[in-house]
Amino acid sequence: MTTRGFSGRRPTSEAAARLPPGQYETHDFPVLSLGPTPDVDLATWTFTIHDGPRPLARWTWTELEALPRTRWTADIHCVTKWSKFGTEWEGVTFDDLMAAAGVAPPTPYLLALSHDGYDTNVPVADLAGGRAMIATRYAGAPIEAEHGGPARLLVPHLYFWKSAKWVRGLRFTARDEAGFWELRGYHMRGDPWREQRYTNDP
């Protein structure tokens, strides 16, 4: 099938190699959120890891900022089809967080929990081994509230809805429980290179 009259604007071959299927490159940083941006107070901010209902470890903002910090440069891919290359993040990796908590992941699945009531499920295998962080800085500055500040989950190899904004904790779950968008038509894992956008995509 060809769309008569459409020629398109092709990405450079370098950009094309970095774009998962169906994505286009943007230099902007679009904002997508399900509702209002929550007002998160650092003075009372905490980050908690739960095993089901049971809290395993908790940090205040100052305590989290004192954990080992890591900087990453990553391409990010939004399910609404934009990709942004070379984004620069700083934060505490999932591995360092678990080490600081002094526990091993008690189950293979978890839900990332946010201040606005949002949640999203991510398998531990997609977080451990240097694949995810709790990010607190973007491009050398504190993350803006619209982009999920003060802290957001960053799982750059999955569609960006998995990188929960305004994150306040992680809850390990016995099975892979669907989160907010996963209950509303979006894929349980969300690998952009396999184009796992919607619920029943392979």
Partner: peptide, 11 residues
């Protein structure tokens, strides 16, 4: 929680 948003474009 009663406010639903759909946005386009950057910050």
């Amino acid at each position: 929680p009663t406010i639903r948003a759909e946005r386009y474009g950057g910050a």
